[in-house]
């Protein structure tokens, strides 16, 4: 299976938008290489603002640009953009409702070999508590391009996080997405797997394994975490017997707890949250860490089977 760069897809979509709209600006923090937007600096030199290794200023500058009517993409490693500049995100972007798109690249454990300084497993938790800010975590390059096109034109403050490595396609070229709705990757009536980002691929593969065991799993791609498609979660709680969430994020404050909150306040079914535990993470590649923490198709299928068994007791 060929793998495609999500970062490259986002960069290409920004290029298309910037070519069509002279009000699109790009802000970087010595991060043009890691965000794969080096070419945009040559294409749009006046609208490419390099702020150096200074994330707080970069987000402030982006908001100042936006206040004059610009649509601004800030591309920076997610670990820094989500934390170092959090107050600027809270106030300059979210509170001011600035047309600023914060693109956190190499998120999750993309930088796993670099150690705990470079993990981003806290961004859903911190960003979702900010009013006005919308949150996206695309599953693959096709979806990332579609979301980038959408946010370039929606006028809203956005946090969009993507990984670093190339990923297998979940969707075919030309797939369309209703931005308001979780994407149904496949349908089933026994259990629902809700995932986001790169975990959607593993959830999809797990559904395949479950089918072989006679279990019909629905897979929901919750690519927009805020506003979240609560209706899809509630519907799943009536249509299927249990819900399993999978995310490349701490088990605290992310997709799983969002789903738990929706279920607890509407209709409870057995739930399991899969993600990164509340501990210091091992060093290793994404793949090694996914395997160590059980975020593989095989283990998701195993957990889903066990959860369903518990639900049926």
């Amino acid at each position: 299976m060929t793998k495609v760069s999500v970062r490259g897809a986002v960069a290409a979509a920004i290029q298309t938008e910037a070519a069509a709209n002279p009000n699109v600006y790009i802000v970087t923090t010595d991060s043009r290489g890691s965000a794969m937007v080096t070419g945009l600096a040559d294409l749009f030199p006046e609208r490419f603002i390099e702020c150096g290794i200074a994330e707080q200023n970069a987000v402030g500058v982006a908001s100042g640009l936006a206040s004059t009517g610009k649509t601004v993409f800030v591309l920076s490693p997610a670990c820094f953009l989500s934390a170092r500049s959090y107050e600027q995100v809270k106030i300059d972007v979210a509170y001011n409702e600035s047309d600023v798109k914060l693109i956190g690249v190499s998120a999750g454990v993309s930088y796993g070999p670099l150690g705990g300084t470079h993990t981003t497993l806290n961004d859903f938790a911190s960003m979702r508590a900010l009013p006005n800010l919308e949150i996206y975590a695309p599953a693959d390059a096709v979806q990332a391009a579609a979301i980038t096109k959408h946010i370039a034109q929606d006028g809203k403050p956005v946090w969009l996080r993507i990984g670093r490595g190339d990923v297998e396609a979940v969707y075919e070229d030309g797939e369309s997405f209703d931005i308001e709705r979780a994407k149904v990757v496949c349908d089933g009536s026994d259990i629902t797997l809700i995932a986001c980002g790169e975990m959607v691929l593993y959830a999809k593969k797990a559904a395949g394994l479950l089918a072989e065991a006679g279990i019909a799993a629905r897979v929901l791609d919750m690519f927009r975490l805020k506003p979240v498609d609560a209706a899809a979660v509630i519907q799943a709680s009536y249509d299927t017997e249990a819900i399993l969430t999978i995310e490349e994020h701490s088990i605290h404050g992310g997709l799983g707890e969002m789903v738990a909150g929706i279920l607890a306040q509407n209709h409870c079914v057995p739930l399991k949250i899969m993600g990164f535990p509340d501990e210091e993470y091992k060093v290793g590649s994404s793949q090694e860490l996914f395997e160590h923490y059980g975020l593989t198709a095989e283990n998701i299928a195993r957990e889903a089977g066990a959860l369903l068994e518990r639900a049926r007791l």
Binding site: Y25, I49, Q56, N57, V59, G60, V61, A62, S63, G64, L65, A66, S67, T68, G69, K70, E87, Q88, I91, D92
Partner: peptide, 16 residues
């Protein structure tokens, strides 16, 4: 109101 935010905002406005 959170201090140290005004100058970055003004820089962005001035660039535009």
């Amino acid at each position: 109101g959170a201090l140290g935010h005004g100058l970055p905002l003004a820089v962005g406005m001035a660039i535009a």
